[in-house]
Write a protein that binds this DNA or RNA. Structure first.
Length: 893
DNA sequence: GAGCACTGC
């Protein structure tokens, strides 16, 4: 692509009579861009070669580098700690061995000798052993509980007492442990008995609830398993005894193995329609390996929308194939590449594959690419569709498998030139669906009533309630707990557990705890339970029919998070959550008529709802110049694309021919919004790369840095104010990070300052990645502290699009759209009201708010973006911060 | 004086 451009442009400029300086600089830039891209490619190749020589894979090298660095930095601190750690691990292992030994001993003993043949002493000894085992087990259980503590605020502790809070992340330091934990959870939850099994015969409750909701059953979501099939079902114990091979054979996909391989051989693109539980994600790639699709050293790739899925599926498949994870079977996700030169089966997140396109635009190292969970329609899968469809045209030997749930298969087939659909049955129980007779005005209240109604009248079994956000969940939790308290012993125990993404992970783990016999668990969840979290043993689902959805308005450049009715697809997905382990019931808090006539068929895909700045830049970097005619499964709004292109042009990532510039090529290396990418690159000129990288990392996790527990709001706000910087929030965030880094990334410090450790850890990961990328785009890391003017100038160089000026009445108006906006009350500048501000984002909640604001001087705008701002636009600026209270008076003049 | 659904690079 680039060479063609160069030729064309070279000839056009030579035909010009006089030297056109603009044209010349464009050509020079294009040349420099291609030289830069070549350097990148060369460096990547050298790096790969080195890795292959070292045989350990990239991961090993990274690990080794990290370890060396660590050792160098604080060897003295770490060694004693490591010693304790290893001693502890040894003791732990020894204890486990001993307990297992004891248990086996008792079992043997009981098997060999009946109680009656034993002497008194032998009987006593057996009794003693059993007691010992019990104590050991109880002890272990208690320790498990201790290990996962609630969020303790420091002031809860007495003086001198050490905090016992253990961040769950501490256990994630071993390689792959996040996935191990996930698996353990999954396994544990699978073992929990379905509540009703333990229950005695249903007791009659004569209980009158305040109000009741009338439900009518409308239809049953068909399951592929019937109640009767349960007899043939394997108990957990039996399943454990089954070998891996037997388990594989028992999966619904197994009988289709040969047909599937034949179909893949015959067709280049195949749509696989299969429900969850069919085993397609783990089995299909293995079948293809067996069928020889990786014979010529090429890989089979499989994308997943979520990190945990990519990791755990890879681990499972490695086990089934009897290889070590990271060798023949590996996974690749952000911050973690667990593959080697031996890898033939690679699981990855869709975003990772999207990035891989930058260094390998033809997917040359793959013979098969599987896009799994395509129906979820994430931004990345949607873009991948267009890209792989294009590649398939000039690489006829590349096989594509698109795997999706039932409803969308036809649509995918049509998109991929009527590719054949291969259907695989799943495993699911039927779910009865109930609708309300009349619409419910207050759905929170209706939820609570329904929960109690189910609790009082229905057989035991856990309830899952879908709510829109933290706020609703907390309200609902209070109401339920209050009503349960008032009903007292008239009803059985009801355990209420909340779950949403921002909840600390130890509290999230509570949803996997077993429900005690004769009690019922109610899980109040956001959409997180719709796809991301799978909770077993749910029998009842309550679905009010709403969700929060992010929408981007490209006309105003504003994001809004609003409560909207869900789609039919989403409603059915929610209902399906009731039928995973047994037949279930789903109560919809809307009428059957509303379902039929008011709900959309499908949720609007993400690509149509968000800012596409980064996506467009990536596509440009891949040489796709005509974005308006890019083959989208669902094309995003025209204005969104135009806005993205416009911004890229203003930022200098595209030249006036719409071609990618060197600056744009460098920006594309960063997995951030183009404005932020520009800001990072501008830090080179302003000699503050250290600061900008930190700020970028903090901004990208920002929403969840400050922790505000409901009962300690005042403390939390005071703690937050201590970080406030007079020039704005970017600098406050910088202070937070730097102070944290000074404490050696202490967890304790986070709790003392009401800062979420999890978010900070993530910011650290992001920062590390960005530092690596800065080196990649040939920028040295330097710091400008304690001076911070350059920090704000570099931010302005990226975000000059996001500037507002104080106007009459204390409101701000955006410079380009003249739109009235306000500083968000959480900002450190909320009461300061500087004349000119720059904002990181514009969000519409109750009003139009600028979130993350810094004070700037208008003359900087002319310095960093002379092509975008005219001096006239910026007139009448005093550039002085107005004295508090006097601001308005001065403005009226 | 507000309030952040969920992912991912």
């Amino acid at each position: 692509m680039s060479s063609k451009n160069r030729k064309r442009t070279a000839s056009s400029s030579s035909s010009a009579e006089e030297p056109d300086s603009e044209e010349e600089s464009r050509i020079k830039d294009l040349r420099e861009r291609d030289e830069f891209a070549n350097r990148l490619k060369q460096r990547d190749e050298e790096r790969t070669r080195k890795v292959v020589e070292a045989t350990g894979g990239r991961k090993a090298i990274e690990e080794a580098t990290k370890r060396l660095k660590l050792e160098h930095e604080d060897r003295d601190k770490i060694v004693p700690h490591l010693r304790v750690q290893s001693r502890r691990q040894y003791l732990e292992k020894r204890k486990d061995d001993k307990v297992a030994e004891l248990e086996a001993d008792i079992l043997d003993d009981e098997y060999l000798f009946e109680e009656s043949v034993l002497t008194k002493r032998e009987r006593e000894e057996r009794q003693y052993k059993k007691q010992l085992l019990n104590i050991a087990k109880e002890h272990e259980k208690a320790r498990e509980l201790e290990r996962i503590q609630r969020y303790h605020m420091p002031q809860d502790l007495k003086k001198g007492e050490r905090s016992e809070y253990v961040e769950v992340d501490d256990f994630e330091k071993q390689p792959n442990s996040e996935q191990k934990k996930w698996e353990a959870e999954q396994l544990a939850s699978a073992r929990f008995q379905f509540g009703a099994k333990d229950a005695k015969a249903e007791e009659e409750y004569e209980l009158l609830l305040d109000d009741q909701i009338d439900f009518i059953q409308a239809l049953t979501l068909d399951g592929s398993r019937e109640k009767a099939a349960k007899e043939t079902e394997l108990t957990e114990k039996e399943r454990k005894r089954m070998t891996l091979e037997e388990t594989r054979r028992s999966l619904p996909v197994y009988p289709f193995k040969e047909d599937l391989i034949a179909a893949v051989r015959e067709h280049q693109v195949l749509i696989i329609e299969g429900e969850t539980g069919s085993g397609k994600t783990t089995q299909v790639p293995q079948y293809l390996v067996e069928a020889g699709f990786t014979a010529d050293k090429k890989m089979i790739g499989c994308t997943q929308p979520r990190r945990v899925a990519a990791m755990s599926v890879a681990a499972r498949v490695a086990e089934e194939m009897g290889v070590k994870l990271g060798n023949e079977v590996g996974y690749s996700i952000r911050f973690e590449d667990c593959t080697s030169d031996r890898t033939i089966l690679k699981y990855m997140t869709d975003g990772t594959l999207h990035r891989e396109f930058l260094s390998e635009p033809d997917l040359a190292s793959y013979s098969v690419m599987i896009i799994d969970e395509a129906h979820e329609r994430t931004l990345h899968t949607d873009i991948l569709f267009g890209l792989v469809k294009d590649i398939a045209r000039f690489r006829p030997e590349l096989k594509l498998l698109i795997s999706s749930a039932t409803l969308d298969a036809e649509k995918f087939s049509a998109f991929f030139d009527d590719a054949p659909i291969f259907r695989i049955p799943g495993r699911r129980y039927p779910v009865d669906i109930f609708y309300t007779k009349a619409p419910e005005a207050d759905y929170i209240d209706a939820c609570c009533v329904s929960v109690l109604q189910i609790h009082a009248t229905q057989p035991l079994g856990d309830i899952l309630v879908f709510l829109t956000g933290q706020d609703e969940i907390e309200t609902c939790q209070e109401v339920l707990q209050d009503r349960v308290k008032r009903l007292g012993s008239k009803i059985r125990e009801l355990i209420v557990v909340p779950v949403y993404a921002n909840l600390p992970s130890d509290m999230q783990a509570k949803i996997f705890e077993p429900t005690p016999p004769n009690a019922r668990k109610v899980i109040l969840a956001t959409n997180i339970a719709e796809t991301s979290l799978t909770i077993d043993n749910i029998i009842y689902v309550i679905d009010p029919g709403f969700a929060k959805q992010n929408n981007f308005n490209s006309r105003t450049g504003m994001e809004s998070l609003m409560v909207v009715p869900i789609s039919k697809a989403s409603a059915n997905q929610r209902a399906g959550r009731a039928g995973r382990t047994a037949p279930g019931k789903c109560f919809r808090l809307y009428t059957a008529w509303a379902y039929k006539h008011e709900l959309e068929e499908n949720t609007v895909p993400e690509i149509c709802r968000i800012n596409l700045g980064n996506a467009v830049l990536m596509l440009k970097a891949l040489g796709i110049n005509d974005l308006i005619h890019f083959d989208f499964l669902d094309p995003p709004p025209h204005e969104t694309l135009v806005l993205a292109l416009e911004q890229l042009y203003a930022l200098g990532a595209l030249n006036h021919h719409g071609e990618l510039t060197k600056l744009g090529r460098r920006m594309a290396e960063f997995p951030v919004d183009p404005m932020m990418g520009k800001m990072l690159l501008a830090s080179e000129k302003y000699k503050c790369s250290e600061e900008m990288v930190t700020i970028a990392a903090m901004l990208s996790v920002n929403s969840a840095i400050f922790y505000r527990p409901k009962d300690k709001i005042i403390h939390a706000d005071t703690a937050r104010k201590n970080f406030n910087h007079m020039h704005g929030d970017h600098l406050s965030l910088l202070q937070v990070y730097n102070q944290w880094a000074e404490t050696d990334y202490s967890t304790q410090w986070c709790y003392e300052n009401f800062i979420q450790y999890r978010s900070m850890k993530r910011a650290r990961d992001v920062r590390e990645q960005l530092v690596g990328l800065m080196q990649r785009v040939e920028i040295d890391m330097v710091s400008c502290l304690p001076e911070t003017i350059n920090v704000r100038k570099a931010a302005t160089a990226g975000y000059f699009y996001h500037v507002a000026r104080l106007s009459k009445g204390g409101n701000y108006k955006t410079i380009k759209h003249n739109q009235t906006v306000m500083i968000h009350p959480n900002s450190s500048l909320f009461e300061e009201l500087p004349r000119w501000v720059l904002y990181h984002e514009l969000v519409f909640t109750s009003k139009e708010f600028m979130r993350q604001v810094i004070e700037i001087e208008s003359k900087w705008l002319l310095e960093v973006a002379p092509h975008y701002y005219k001096a006239k636009e910026l007139e009448d600026s005093t550039n002085k911060k107005m004295p508090k209270g006097a601001g308005r008076a001065e403005m009226t003049q």
